[in-house]
């Protein structure tokens, strides 16, 4: 009943997973008055609990991946993930470096890949608009990250459904 309002007010969470800040600046540029993403009702909330779209930039360093997973799992469904920039999509020039695995989709499911180094605001807006179409289709079932980090006992992502959490591959770092 309220599905059609999903794309009218998508709130954004922006996470920098070890990016060079090139893509971050472009994201902020598209939120700023020139491109004015607020005309679509888009707000940069900075809080996973109230946002619908996760914009990830950067090649996901080993330090940042557990935060990424934690933030992802704190977002309420329906939610979409947009990987911004080529590093985020595949690892880019950092692929196979000692502190980087390849791309964000090893950790969380990604819905839209936006290429470019750095992606331009037009591309980003285009990617977000495509993500909105996906967001409208999504169900409210729980979406799990592909891996969990840290101690499982300490990790209360699914406090009610610990069983479900156990099925996810778990890495201790």
């Amino acid at each position: 009943m309220f599905e059609k309002f999903r794309k009218k007010s998508p709130w954004i969470l922006h996470y920098n997973a070890g990016s060079c800040n090139g893509c971050d600046i472009e994201i902020l540029a598209s939120l700023a008055p020139k491109y004015d993403l607020e005309r679509f009702g888009i707000i940069n909330t900075g809080n996973p609990k109230q946002s619908d779209i996760l914009l990830v930039t950067g090649p996901v360093t080993l330090k940042s991946r557990e935060r990424l997973v934690e933030l992802y799992s704190q977002m309420p469904e329906p939610k979409v993930v947009v990987a911004i920039g080529v590093c985020t999509c595949t690892g880019g020039v950092f692929r196979k470096m000692y502190n980087v695995k390849a791309g964000v989709d090893r950790y969380v499911p990604v819905d839209v890949y936006v290429p470019g180094c750095a992606s331009s605001p037009d591309q980003i807006i285009d990617g977000v608009v495509q993500a909105l179409a996906i967001l409208e289709e999504k169900s409210k079932d729980i979406e799990k990250p592909k891996r969990l980090f840290g101690e499982l006992t300490n990790n209360s992502i699914f406090t009610n459904r610990r069983e479900m959490a156990k099925k996810i591959k778990h890495e201790k770092n």
Binding site: F2, K8, S9, P33, D36, E38, R39, G41, P78, K140
Partner: peptide
């Protein structure tokens, strides 16, 4: 928004936000 020379969201935007929030998983 107009004071910042932007277009700004639609007038009913807060209502859209509310309906969207109703749709989220609690």
């Amino acid at each position: 928004a107009r004071m910042q020379r932007r277009l700004g969201p639609p007038l009913m935007q807060p209502f859209y936000d509310m309906f969207k929030l109703l749709d989220k998983r609690p």
